[in-house]
């Protein structure tokens, strides 16, 4: 068995840990893009940050409804 089978929580935490880099990719890519859609950045980044809440909610399934109570 060579592939790690991390538990759900650990897996989600690793995902959260790498999310910053992924969002940075999005910002960098959109900024440099020739399609001229820099205006999209604030919304896209905001939604990505909201996505972190979604990850958090699925990390602790049993508490998911309460995590949404943040809002």
């Amino acid at each position: 068995m060579v592939v790690r089978k991390p538990g759900g929580i650990r897996r989600r935490l690793i995902m959260l840990g790498t999310a910053g880099g992924s969002i940075a990719d999005l910002i960098r890519g959109t900024w440099r893009s020739e399609s001229g859609n820099r205006w999209l950045l604030p919304l896209a980044v905001f939604l990505c940050v909201f996505g972190l809440v979604l990850i958090l909610a699925t990390t602790v399934e049993a508490l998911a409804p309460f995590i949404y109570a943040i809002f």
Partner: peptide, 24 residues
Amino acid sequence: AMKNSLGEKVWARGIISSHLGVPR
């Protein structure tokens, strides 16, 4: 669409990293 994408799919690097433990 947002839950589908942001809940997992956009974080491809994180998913790979969490399964394989390879550096970024």
